[in-house]
């Protein structure tokens, strides 16, 4: 578990984002330190996923800044004017941030192993043999050594999601983003994916996750951020956020998970 003394990895300040007239993010501030597991919670529509997607520029943010290792993501400021980086520069930044999606998004024309290898060979420029070795290592680590030649359509949702995690983590990202990665899974498949994530968290991977798995968040996260209406309404250690909700909105939100959370102790 990372302490507050660990180096600052991700720093977001005043991030805003609108879709047309609808302001989704109204100025988000967030810090993630190296080795930390930070969870974004909140009702749907509160902007969690949009914020996550701004971090690797799958969505463009409008004002504010997001910095990874001190380097601003997506834009540079030149004589007070904000300019978008080139696609090549943005791609290089994205390569340092891994992402796992709600709907897995495995490349459908590739086996599990090829899915993991693609970024290693094409983005990292690793020789095929080395990429294969790395892919096999990670597929083994997520418990899919015997499924590496299977295509996505031959795998269950839980298995596909574990391949997707292997694909992201094999790139050795500085930060790993998880966007509601268990929401599309059948209930009996959720545990296998959460187990892999817990394993990664223990190994010191820096993780930022959007999740509705409150028990998991409570057990694994170092820092919990409650988002409401496009702003950070409360943030702190899990015990603090879950046991001393400062606003009626957070109390109401947590109330829905009451049975689960009291079970967690």
């Amino acid at each position: 578990m990372a302490t507050s003394k660990a180096a600052l990895l991700l720093q977001a300040r005043g991030v805003t984002k609108s879709f047309g007239d609808l302001e989704i993010l109204k100025g988000i501030d967030l810090d993630v330190r190296q080795g930390q597991v930070v969870a974004l919670i909140g009702a749907s529509g509160s902007g969690k996923t949009t914020f996550l997607r701004c971090i690797n520029l799958l969505e463009e943010y409008e004002r504010g800044e997001i910095r990874l290792d001190g380097e601003q993501i997506g834009y540079r400021v030149e004589s007070r004017e904000r300019r978008r980086l080139s696609e090549a520069q943005v791609s290089a930044q994205r390569a340092r941030i891994g992402m796992v999606f709600q709907s897995f998004n495995l490349f459908p024309h590739m086996s599990a192993e090829q899915n993991v290898m693609l970024g290693l060979t094409k983005v990292r420029g690793k020789p095929k043999v080395e990429a294969q070795e790395i892919a096999r290592h990670w597929l083994d680590r997520v418990g899919l050594a015997d499924r590496r030649d299977h295509y996505p359509y031959q795998l269950s949702g839980g298995q596909q999601q574990r391949v997707a995690i292997a694909r992201a983590v094999a790139m050795e990202p500085r930060l790993l983003l998880f966007d509601e990665v268990t929401s599309a899974l059948d209930p009996e498949l959720v545990a296998e994916v959460l187990a892999v994530m817990q394993d990664l968290a223990r190994s010191g991977m820096t993780m930022l996750l959007v999740s509705h798995e409150m028990l998991f968040v409570r057990q694994v996260a170092d820092h919990v951020v409650f988002m409401d209406g496009g702003v950070v309404a409360q943030a702190g250690a899990p015990a603090e956020v879950f046991e001393r909700p400062a606003t009626p909105r957070l109390r109401q939100f947590l109330g829905r998970f009451h049975g689960i959370l009291t079970g967690a102790g």
């Binding site: 994205r94 992402m99 094409k122």
Partner: peptide, 14 residues
């Protein structure tokens, strides 16, 4: 769109 996003997310160029 999801396949393209997955490719973006691992840092592939256009």
């Amino acid at each position: 769109r999801q396949y393209v996003e997955a490719a973006k997310a691992i840092g592939m160029r256009p």
